[in-house]
Design a protein around this nucleic acid. Structure first.
Length: 251
DNA sequence: ATGGCTAAGATACTTAGA
């Protein structure tokens, strides 16, 4: 089973890139973020089942699968104002697709980011983290450690790399999740986002904001993960500012 | 293409992204 997480930065602008990616990498399940459109304008994906949680202009997430989607939930209980969360049960795996709020340096949007993660941890109480196969993927908008920022001095005190945010990522690991990208690259700076501004990708000025976290029962089936940076470096068609990440499991 | 932002909604420019 091959699963991809990809912040597409508008599905209408990225339809060709996404469909080529699915074909080339034989993706079975793709979790997209920042689709930036409502469900009615989401393109058709042949031979895939899609759960779309969209809104006009901003945000929006979609989970598409070649396998049957046994059940799903769009948004958290009592929190439907911004489309940032889809839960889907596929092949006995609980798949959570998130687009976390960016937040700001300790303003109102930062509070919303903390609230969003509190809602996510609350949602996880539905599961047995020791026994269930759970996968959380998407754009966390957190750069966990100094390995996840291109320049630690520049990023100190900036949103995505504030101590409270880094603690949230650590909390996932503390409760039993495994960061499969970091498992593959334990000591290496690898990135999944390059700002469009300042030619960041050509200078390797990136951040790692996109994650695939899995519980132990699923980690036992983990084979490999790839960060497809080459797609980000192409000029035409215009890439997303985020990089697709593809994970393979022996399932 | 030897430098350098992009998308949406609006309809010439603002807002948001990280």
């Amino acid at each position: 089973m091959r699963l991809c997480t990809f912040n597409v930065n508008s599905i209408r602008q990225r339809e060709e890139i996404v469909k080529n990616l699915i074909n080339e990498y034989k993706i079975d399940i793709i979790c997209m973020q920042e689709i930036k459109t409502e469900e009615v304008n989401f393109p058709k994906f042949d031979d895939m089942h899609c759960i779309i949680h969209g809104q006009k202009k901003l945000n929006g997430v979609a989970t598409c699968s070649v396998f049957e989607i046994e059940k799903y939930q769009k948004g958290f209980e009592g929190e439907l104002s911004e489309a940032r969360f889809i839960y889907a049960l596929i092949n006995g795996i609980h798949i959570i697709n998130i687009y976390a709020p960016l937040g700001d340096n300790y303003g109102e949007r930062f509070e919303y980011k903390i609230y969003f993660y509190n809602k996510l941890f609350e949602f996880l109480k539905n599961f047995d983290l020791q026994k269930d196969k759970i996968l959380i993927c998407g754009d966390f908008n957190i750069s966990h450690t100094e390995l996840d920022v291109w320049d630690e001095e520049i990023w100190e005190g900036e949103v995505t790399h504030l101590p409270e945010e880094r603690a949230i990522l650590s909390k996932f690991l503390d409760i039993g999740f495994i960061d499969i990208i970091r498992k593959k690259y334990p000591n290496e700076k690898v990135f999944s986002f390059y700002d469009y501004r300042g030619a960041a990708v050509y200078k390797n000025e990136g951040l790692r904001l996109d994650y695939i976290l899995v519980t132990k029962p699923l980690f036992d089936k983990f084979k490999d993960v790839e960060i497809l940076t080459a797609i980000r470096r192409k000029r035409k068609p215009t890439p997303s500012d985020h990089v697709p990440v593809v994970a393979e499991f022996d399932i």
